[in-house]
Amino acid sequence: MEGTPRHTVIVSHGSALRAVRVARRRYARLPWRPLGLIEQRRVLAACAPNRGDIDMGLLYREGLWDFEHPETPIEVLVTHRNQTRHRPGLRCHVCSSALPAGSILEIAPGIYSVSPALMLAQYARSHDFPEVVALAFELCGTFSLKESHVPGEICFDPSDHERESGYFESDPAIHAKELGRQLEGLAGIGNAKLALRAARHTLDGARSPGEAIMASLFHLPFAAGGFAIRAMRLNHKVPFSREARAISGMPYAVCDAYVPESHTTLEYNGAYHDLSSSRIHDERRTAGLKAMGITTDALNRIQLADIDALEAEAIQLYRRAGARYQNRAHAHRVKQVELLNGLRRAFGWPEC
């Protein structure tokens, strides 16, 4: 395209993750434009970054550079080692593989980013499976962590151990089905195999880290440390019947994690549920769901640290579905604890 700048910057890896989180916090969505194949090739060919030629002010305004930590390098993507530049504050990553259309997104004129799918494949190269699952749930959820967040960094408010902090509401950056489709076209790049494995077990619509941890544990297969509840819908809307509306005073309920085969909804109750107004709302909502034949099982942060309590809940879900809970995965308890702690660590929760 004639409008392609002579020199471009394509942020990648950790810089791209920071950029995605900044955009979702600012705009409550990811507003960047995906490139077509021809334009994408031109942009990639023009990326031979030099720190001295980069408009650092523009990168700062777009949230791609941390002014408070200028020693943190800007990570960029290039397609050939001849395009790399060895400069302080700049880290180049070579990707010579052909990228499918939509792998590069335009942030601003001359400034681009790798797509969420490509970023997840890159992330999977240096992170373990629970951390990759956590990021996939974040990208496909309606929440985004702080741009400065790194796995293992505790994000509790020290004055209130029960309150989640460090995340913002946002539209999804991508949907799970599309994430999986794009990762299939990125075979061999980063660790796309691990990222695709995580994407295939990712559900759309988690509203908080707590919901993502809960959904991951119950949804992932036994071999990964989960409880293999395959049929699960996050933030599923249940329209109420006339009787349910009369009992609850509500036209519908939105279930955190609805398991249709068990006629049960799992609800993650954060600290705000302890408020009197929230308790009244929860009681009315539970009564309405009961009138619809749906059982409500509430889990709090304490239970999300107790693998025995979580497995007992899984057994109940299987029983209500008329099935038998049979976890024959080798060393399944070890895998369950590793998954639980890995997810907690990824979202900044203390390990149990």
Rank of each mutant, 00 (worst) to 15 (best):
M214D: 03
R24I: 00
P221Y: 01
D171L: 13
P260D: 11
G52I: 07
H7E: 12
I302Q: 13
S216Y: 08
V22L: 00
A45I: 02
R242I: 06
Q336L: 04
P88M: 02
A305Y: 00
R197Y: 04
R285M: 08
T72Q: 14
A309P: 03
A198G: 05
P100E: 02
G63K: 15
H201Y: 11
A224M: 13
I74D: 10
E131M: 05
A136S: 12
R200L: 14
V20N: 00
P130Y: 00
D274K: 13
G141D: 03
G36K: 10
S148F: 04
S277G: 06
N327P: 06
S208C: 08
R51E: 06
D157R: 15
A101T: 12
H86M: 11
F156W: 10
I294L: 05
R345Q: 10
A45E: 14
D274R: 15
A108H: 02
Y272T: 14
S241T: 15
Y318L: 08
E311R: 15
M119V: 01
V150K: 11
H236A: 12
S170N: 12
A176F: 06
L340N: 08
Y123I: 01
F227M: 08
L37S: 11
A224E: 15
R25E: 08
Q326Y: 03
Y123C: 04
G102E: 07
V133W: 03
H13I: 00
R6S: 10
K177D: 09
I174K: 03
F137Y: 14
A298C: 11
Y112D: 07
L90T: 10
F240E: 02
H332G: 01
A231G: 02
L105R: 04
R42P: 03
N191H: 04
M56H: 11
E178K: 12
P34G: 01
P31A: 02
Q182S: 08
S277T: 10
H281K: 15
G342V: 05
G190L: 00
T295I: 03
A23H: 06
I302L: 09
P158L: 08
V43Q: 09
Q83I: 05
A287Y: 11
